[in-house]
Nucleic acid binder design. Structure first.
Lengths: 158, 158
DNA sequence: GTCCTTGCAAAACTTTTGCACCAGT
DNA sequence: ACTGGTGCAAAAGTTTTGCAAGGAC
């Protein structure tokens, strides 16, 4: 399935591959990359292909069942918990944990990571639709065709 | 120069390529990707290669002169301002602005982006050294050899 | 002169896709 | 049956690297 078609799917089917991928992601204590998921799933479904893993993670993320974290380094990571929560990431090895905000207070949770990690930086990012993508429907998508300096919200090219 | 060696460089030299790359990045109003920088620099130094742009952006980021934003989608982006500040990113086209925190108040700045963007999500991320990378010096780097559990993937990224 | 830097090309990596066949509903 | 999903392999897209020559200090 081409990724552009996945945007308006008629219905999603539950295959053993999709089920297993979701299970493995949920059993994973950290936020794995696609090929980590692949390795895990392969232990149960040896014939699965990496392409299938990518396709399913994409579909699951579109459904909102999981979350794709495009916030990391080289490889994208996936998170079985689609609810919003904060992450703690290692600058050195890329390890990625959740901010342990269970029933504890915010200060306790932060105290906890402050004790184990050596925090160097805090990043706050707002995501949404820019002025151009907000309304004109297609106006923005067109610019998305790579190389059209994607970031360009019509900024002058000084 | 191999990127592993760049970690303990003896001295950095200022070449016309490096100077131009920095200039162009600073003249850029948004946060360009490496190949956007390449396109711009090429107008002044037609013979420069993409590899050189990557190497220099890496070096400049290590020096702390610029900032590598591994927070975005497909391609990494670079920011001429190494000071910490918040970003606003478009989920649709990837446009990336700074939170306009000039002399105005936080609420005014947020009100501003709230009026132009349609904010859907806020992300807060803490970055630092994980327990394993914090002390044992090499213990973590070893996990860095791909496929080694937890965060053990991905390169140190910034 | 030393050794960091460059241009070029090839390689390494991650992700997406075309296609023919398979399988969920 | 209909049509989405799968495996495989190839392609696409992004970043890194080996090497010999060039240039900053």
């Amino acid at each position: 399935m081409k990724m552009e078609n996945v945007l308006q799917p008629r219905a999603f089917r539950m295959t053993s591959q999709r089920r297993t991928i979701l299970e493995e992601l949920r059993n994973c204590r950290w936020h794995p990359t696609a090929d980590e998921v692949y390795e895990r799933v392969r232990r149960k479904l040896p014939r699965i292909s990496l392409g299938t893993v990518y396709r399913n993670l994409e579909v699951l993320a579109l459904q909102g069942t999981i979350r794709k974290l495009d916030i990391c380094g080289r490889q994208k990571r996936f998170d079985a918990d689609p609810r919003m929560h904060c992450h703690v990431r290692c600058l050195e090895c890329g390890a990625m944990d959740d901010l342990p905000l269970g029933d504890s207070t915010l200060s306790r949770a932060i105290g906890e990571i402050d004790a184990s990690y050596e925090i160097r930086e805090v990043r706050l990012e707002f995501l949404g639709l820019c002025p151009k993508c907000k309304a004109p429907e297609r106006a923005c998508r067109d610019r998305d065709t790579r190389r059209g300096h994607s970031g360009g919200v019509g900024r002058p090219d000084t």
